[in-house]
Structures are given as structure tokens and as C-alpha cells.
Design a protein around this nucleic acid. Structure first.
Ligand SMILES: [Zn+2]
Ligand SMILES: [Zn+2]
Ligand SMILES: [Zn+2]
Ligand SMILES: [Zn+2]
Lengths: 159, 159
DNA sequence: CCGCGAACGTTATATCATAACACACACGAT
DNA sequence: ATCGTGTGTGTTATGATATAACGTTCGCGG
């Protein structure tokens, strides 16, 4: 998996690929990739940053796709449950998954200065956590690993 | 005996020690360990579980120590800022620190069945995270590591 | 046709958190 | 001694996030 948060990239391409991946995954698993769900994923991909449910809802409203909180929350829950997006606990916000389809323990780097969010593989951290939990007899089902600090650009600006 | 993390322990003793540690740390650092702050820490220690700010506030209200949200939030913020308590993002809740005074990267194991919360050293996971972040030029300042799953007791009950 | 489950639309409400301002008090400087 | 200043507290009001509950629609298999 590639980290996208702090680097330039071909964004049109990355949107198209993610959407197609989601579409195919839904078809393969018999999930309904409905217009609202699709559009919410598009919105997250467009912005390429962490968005609150109400931010997403604002966009849906303007487009006549839904006007009440449950519409946004249901679509977001679907995307999160199926690995197309992640919830960032620290921000009460959502972000499109940078590597949909791959089984992974996401790990987020959140810049406190510019609010950029990068998803990076958290496999090592996740393994360490599972090991520690296992020693206590705790059965880990989901892991949230989130770091707050300064992104490369803001570290420079700070200095 | 109550449950600390997932194990039994001498709870009266653990409350007393934690309170004393906080008291001494405040004195040493010139921080004000005011009645409200002290009482809030006691409340978190008493319950020995994750509590919402409003849960804490309910107790304060009954005791005439404060009746409005800012009172609870201010005290909790103080305790968190100084390492006497932690905030659990996943639960929007607070818990007394299990190792006050020691510099540590806390890591939480949250049981989805019984809501028990254990704090465990997250040093290995935290180190792994910092290493991954460092490769990207990200400067980590704070880390939140939270696992959701089944505690030992609930794993057994489940089987 | 009917029963069912999944998604959606809507209303209302629950839950979590902070802005803003007034007051009290401790403490060091004038 | 008085004044300014910083810090903590009390209070009102509001903002931000999230879900309960119920009715409607629609496709699908019995
Ligand atoms: Zn992109
Ligand atoms: Zn930044
Ligand atoms: Zn205890
Ligand atoms: Zn449990």
C-alpha cells in the first residue's frame, strides 16, 4: 500500500481506481453499491481528506441525494463496514480507504497544523498490539491506531 | 476487590496510591490539585472504568461540586493533560491512568461485550508506529492505540 | 399475489463538547 | 494598600456529532 496523504499523485486516476475496486468488490460479495453509497465514496475520494458526516451530508443536500443525518451515516457505515472507508476516532471523521480491497490494519497520521491525514500500513504496530493483548487473553477484533503530530510540510514550516 | 483491567486487585490500595501520586506530582510541578480536580480523579478511580464526561458530571452534581458540563470537562482536561487520566477516543470517555507518573504510551483494550477497559503498555506498538511515521517525515507527538474485542471473561462466556 | 429483507426518507431526540462572560481569589509589583 | 494579572470556577447558551423509531419503496423468491 502506498501512502497518499502527504504526496502528490494522479488524483483522477486514484479516484477512478478506488471506485472501480469498490464496485467490483460489491458485485463479488453481493453488496448493493447504491447511488447514495457510491456518491458518498466519491465525495470522500474527491476531497481526499477526513470529512465529518455533516460535511458529507452538506454535499448530498446540494445534490438532492439526501438531507437528513441518517442518510449520510448509513452510507458511511456501509463504506466503513466493507473496508472502502475508515473512521478516524480522534476526529469523529471519515476518510476514503487508501487501499480498498486489501486486508489491512490502517494507521493514521494526522497533522495538527494543516489537518492532512495520511493512511499508512499499521501492520507492525498492529502485530505488536495483538501480541500484547494475547498475553492478557484479550481477543482483538478491531484496532484503531492514530498518531497526531506534524506532517513533513508543517515540520518544515515550523522550523 | 474490583477489576483493574481484567484482573482482580486491591482496589482501595490502588485508589490511594494513584491519588497520592497525583498529589505529589502536582506539588512538584506547581500544579493546582483543586477539590474538583481531585474529586474527578477519585470518581474515575472509584469506578475503574471508562466514564463519559456527563457520567462524571452527574456525580459532581449530586455532591454539589458543579452542575454544568464545563466543570467536568475542565477537570478532565487537566487530568488528561497531566497524565493522571486518559481519553478513550473510541468511546468518547475517560479513564484514570493505570500508571500515573510513568511516561508511557497507553494502549487500550476495550471489551465490546462488557465494556471493560484495560490499559496496557503500548510501547512496542507505539515504537512501530513512530518508525513507520519517521520514514514519511511525519513528526509524532501523541499516539492513540485502541483495540476493540472480547476480554478474557467474555471470550469464555462466548464459547 | 404475498411475505420478506434491504435501503431509504423523515421526524425527533440523544449525546458529546465548547464559546463566552462574570466572579473570586492568590500573589507579586507598584 | 491597591492594583494588575493569571488561574480556576460558575453559568448561560449554543454547537457538533450520532441514533432511535417508524413509515415507504422496491426487488425477489415462495
Ligand atoms: Zn487521491
Ligand atoms: Zn501539516
Ligand atoms: Zn483499582
Ligand atoms: Zn468483557
Amino acid at each position: 500500500m502506498e501512502t497518499k496523504g502527504f504526496e502528490h499523485h494522479d488524483h483522477h486516476h486514484c479516484i477512478a481506481t478506488s471506485l472501480r475496486t469498490a464496485e467490483e468488490a460489491c458485485k463479488a460479495q453481493g453488496l448493493q453499491f447504491t447511488p447514495v453509497r457510491r456518491r458518498v465514496l466519491e465525495i470522500l475520494l474527491d476531497e481526499h481528506r477526513a470529512m465529518g458526516a455533516y460535511d458529507v451530508l452538506d454535499v448530498l443536500r446540494k445534490e438532492g441525494l439526501g438531507s437528513q443525518p441518517p442518510v449520510a451515516y448509513r452510507a458511511l457505515d456501509f463504506l466503513v463496514a466493507n473496508g472502502f472507508a475508515h473512521r478516524i476516532e480522534r476526529l469523529n471523521a471519515f476518510v476514503a480507504c487508501a487501499a480498498p480491497g486489501e486486508r489491512h490494519a490502517p494507521c493514521f497520521l494526522i497533522c495538527r497544523a494543516c489537518s492532512a491525514v495520511a493512511e499508512t500500513p499499521g501492520r507492525r504496530a498492529s502485530d505488536a498490539l495483538r501480541a500484547a493483548a494475547g498475553e492478557l487473553g484479550f481477543k482483538v477484533e478491531r484496532v484503531a491506531i492514530e498518531a497526531e503530530g506534524l506532517c513533513p510540510a508543517c515540520v518544515e514550516a515550523d522550523a
